[in-house]
């Protein structure tokens, strides 16, 4: 086993690891925010919103992430320059990067899965708890904010942990649109040094460590409200 390359390549590895973490955090946080809207739309009364949210979730859960990423990168990416005003805007430098499209694809994909899970946990909150909230005079928006959503999120926590871990392990796909994430770094090191296993082992260890960290974070969140089992 030869790990002598770690020192010369430390910057590449570190940047790759940071990029992986960044993509994970961005897609989970933004995806979760979108998922809340998708879930509420699906359990709500507005038929147009319900169908729209349902179709969105069906499309993004029904197609491979790789295809979504390429559709967004090659498809959407090639149309952006024709949108008037966009090319001169401050966002433009960002929008030329593969990283931008990778973040968009990961976010939209995560939102679809999370939206579907949240829909289920919203429906799993006992009706009586919502009636109790109505009975003290809360208006529907407050019931949602104070009782319904917090309860649904807590019911879903164990599942969310699993989703975030899956999301972490979906991130290496961004290398296919030129993003030098941790896997990209490992790929480059393998090319340069002709080592087959060592870079992969290091990368695998990193993903395991990150998974462990995610599990710990969610464990803490779950313990924040003690439940009797």
């Amino acid at each position: 086993m030869d790990f002598s390359w770690i020192i010369p390549y430390r910057e590449l590895l570190l940047n790759g690891a940071l990029l992986t973490c960044m993509l994970l955090v961005i897609s989970v946080v933004l995806g979760f925010a979108i998922a809340i809207f998708l879930a509420i739309a699906q359990v709500g009364n507005n038929p147009v919103l319900r169908v729209a949210a349902k179709s969105y979730c069906t499309f993004f859960r029904g197609t491979p992430l790789l295809i979504q990423l390429w559709l967004i990168y090659y498809g959407l990416g090639s149309y952006l320059p024709y949108i008037p005003g966009l090319k001169g805007s401050f966002l433009w430098p960002l929008m030329r990067e593969g990283l931008f499209f990778a973040a968009v694809a990961l976010t939209l994909n995560f939102a679809a899965y999370q939206g579907e899970i949240l829909r289920g946990t919203l429906l799993a909150v006992p009706k009586g708890e919502l009636e109790a909230a109505l009975a003290v005079g809360m208006r529907p928006s407050m019931v949602l904010r104070r009782i319904w959503l917090p309860r649904a999120i807590r019911i879903g926590l164990p599942t969310f942990a699993g989703e975030v871990i899956l999301q972490l392990k979906a991130t290496p796909i961004v290398f296919s649109v030129t993003v030098m994430d941790l896997y990209g770094a490992a790929y480059k090191i393998r090319q340069d040094t002709l080592l087959v296993y060592e870079p992969l082992i290091l990368v695998a260890a990193f993903y395991v460590a990150l998974t462990f960290l995610i599990t710990q974070v969610f464990q803490r969140l779950e313990n924040a409200v003690p439940a009797r089992r």
Binding site: E129, A132, A135, V136, G137, M142, I147
Partner: peptide, 30 residues
């Protein structure tokens, strides 16, 4: 409704809040 106190057969306390939080929820937020 906020002038009518309702007590349910199945209690319907909010499980993500402590007892005190359950009791102050309506006065504080409603």
């Amino acid at each position: 409704r906020s002038g009518l106190g309702m007590v349910f057969q199945s209690f319907n306390l909010w499980p993500h809040m402590t007892i005190l939080q359950n009791v102050i929820e309506a006065p504080v937020h409603v």
